[in-house]
């Protein structure tokens, strides 16, 4: 009796998980493994018509990638987005969360919703909006700079400013997401800790440094890792706003992969690029976990 119930449950369970697992298996795990194989071939536009023309070339694609200065340029741009964009984004998120959670704030839910609004918007649409905001002559941003007495900047036309422009736009788009996570984290900091710190005569900065920050440790690690992974995958912003220019100043690794794979149909090459990015992301995640574990 017992065993038949168990058998029944076992069978039912498999029927429950089968649809999801076969979809994920077929459309995610198989392609990921296939990508590894693909990256070791010279699969190109001819192979799309007749796949048997693709040949095994071992690590040729990887060798070519590391010898290509465009790859290093794209990697540099991607790292700019990760090393400057991600921390900036996390800082703004934390600042907004602290503001919204501060004592005595009227209508915190309203401010929270406003800050969150850009998160749900469609990236392509807002990237187009920002392209016009960044216009050196008709854009609101340079008008704002003018009010502050600053000279106009050709944001998307100047190779030095194009990457910062994309980073600023991405911070605006994304900070609300991490803000929500920080607000939840702040709510779980025990109130007694603040009271005790106040009794000990700690000022606002000391309370933040010695109570808030340590309590937020795990949240910071999570937010940091997720934001970094997301920033490694920069694609739609440069695709829509700059097409990777000017002079390749905003070409990211994923944009390069897209061009290799779907513009020039060099799929072996593109698959190798995807794996290089994957390995770099994984290493970045490990380093960040080490760093923050060590500190916390």
């Amino acid at each position: 009796m017992r065993s038949t119930i168990e058998q029944q449950q076992n069978r039912a369970a498999w029927i429950f998980v089968l649809p999801a697992l076969s979809l994920i298996g077929l459309f995610f795990f198989v392609p990921v493994l296939g990508g590894l194989v693909l990256s070791l071939t010279d699969f190109d536009i001819y192979a799309i018509g007749s796949p048997d023309t693709a040949r095994f070339v071992a690590f040729d694609n990887y060798r070519k990638i590391f010898a290509d200065h465009l790859f290093w340029k794209a990697l540099g741009n991607t790292f700019t987005n990760v090393l400057i964009g991600a921390p900036l984004s996390v800082l703004v998120s934390l600042g907004a969360a602290l503001l919204v959670s501060a004592k005595g704030v009227r209508l915190p839910a309203l401010f929270r919703s406003i800050y969150f609004a850009p998160v749900v918007t469609t990236l392509v649409a807002v990237a187009i909006v920002w392209r016009y905001l960044y216009h050196p002559k008709y854009g609101l941003i340079d008008m704002g700079l003018g009010w502050l007495g600053l000279p106009p900047i050709d944001w998307l036309g100047d190779p030095h400013w194009a990457m910062p422009a994309i980073i600023l736009m991405a911070v605006w788009k994304n900070f609300g997401y991490n803000m929500i996570i920080f607000i939840a984290g702040l709510q779980s900091v025990p109130q007694e800790l603040y009271e005790a710190a106040e009794v000990d005569g700690a000022n606002a900065w000391q309370r933040f440094r010695h109570v808030t920050l340590p309590s937020l440790g795990p949240t910071l690690l999570f937010v940091g890792v997720m934001t970094m992974i997301g920033n490694f995958q920069l694609f739609a912003e440069p695709y829509v706003m700059t097409q990777g220019g000017p002079v390749r100043a905003t070409t990211s690794v994923v944009l390069l992969m897209y061009e290799e794979g779907f513009r020039w149909w060099r799929m072996g090459m593109a698959a190798a690029l995807a794996f290089v990015l994957f390995v770099i992301t994984a290493i970045g995640t490990l380093i960040q976990m080490r760093l923050q574990r060590g500190r916390g």
Partner: peptide, 22 residues
Amino acid sequence: LLLGALVIPAQVGMLPLFLLLK
């Protein structure tokens, strides 16, 4: 295994997925 796979960026599977769907 599923949780571990969360760290794999979607782009890694995109090219073969395109060929598979083709």
